[in-house]
Computed example of a mutant assay.
Amino acid sequence: MGIKDASAQTLDACRNAMQTEQTRSLQATNHWSHVDKAQAHADWDAFYKVLAPLVGMQAPESAEVQALMAQHYALASRFYTPSRDAYIGMGLFYSENPAMRDFHNTYHPQMVEFLGDAVYAYAMGNLG
């Protein structure tokens, strides 16, 4: 089951959770001043370079991809620790925000779709 299989109501709740949690975190941390943003960007880049070859070769819910998604969640958690819904909302944001979609798809043309399903599988299997 992928992110596209979730109900519209669930997806809206996830979008709202991400927005609410990020806004709260940004306010509480002076716009994530605790994060070494240059290092975070370098780590995201390294992560996507490892994930990209798996797009189309592994299922998003495969053990190999899901092990990588634990790293993805850890990277996201440097900024704030997203709830299950907020993490799914992040996957939606990657596809719905043109700049984020373009950025992610530079690593692989189907990265955003794959990542959305991988985020969804990770959230449903690992986050309460």
Rank of each mutant, 00 (worst) to 15 (best):
I88W: 06
A46Q: 14
E113W: 04
A6H: 06
P82T: 08
M100S: 15
D36I: 01
R24K: 11
L127N: 01
L11Q: 01
A74P: 09
H72V: 02
A8Y: 14
Y73D: 11
S25C: 09
H72Q: 15
Y120V: 06
G125V: 03
A17V: 00
A17G: 05
Q71V: 13
A46Y: 10
R24D: 03
R101C: 01
H34P: 00
A86D: 11
L115T: 08
E113P: 04
R84T: 02
V119G: 08
K37T: 04
I88N: 09
R24N: 03
D117N: 15
S7M: 09
N97H: 14
V112R: 01
D117R: 11
N126L: 09
F47L: 10
A86G: 07
V119S: 10
S7N: 09
H72W: 14
F114Q: 09
G116L: 04
H31V: 14
T81R: 15
P109H: 02
L68W: 01
W44V: 09
A52K: 02
N126W: 04
V112F: 02
S62F: 03
A52C: 07
H34I: 02
W44Y: 14
P98S: 00
D12Y: 06
S83R: 12
G116A: 12
A86Q: 12
Y87C: 06
A121H: 05
E64I: 00
A67N: 14
A70E: 15
S7I: 02
P82G: 12
Y94S: 02
Y107F: 15
P60H: 01
V112I: 09
A63I: 05
M111A: 07
T23G: 11
H41C: 09
A42S: 14
F114D: 08
G128K: 11
A118L: 13
N126H: 15
P60M: 06
D45I: 08
Y107H: 12
S95N: 12
K4N: 08
K4P: 01
E61A: 10
V35I: 12
N126K: 10
H108D: 15
L68P: 01
L75C: 03
M1T: 09
Y94P: 00
A99W: 03
H104A: 06
F114T: 10
R84M: 07
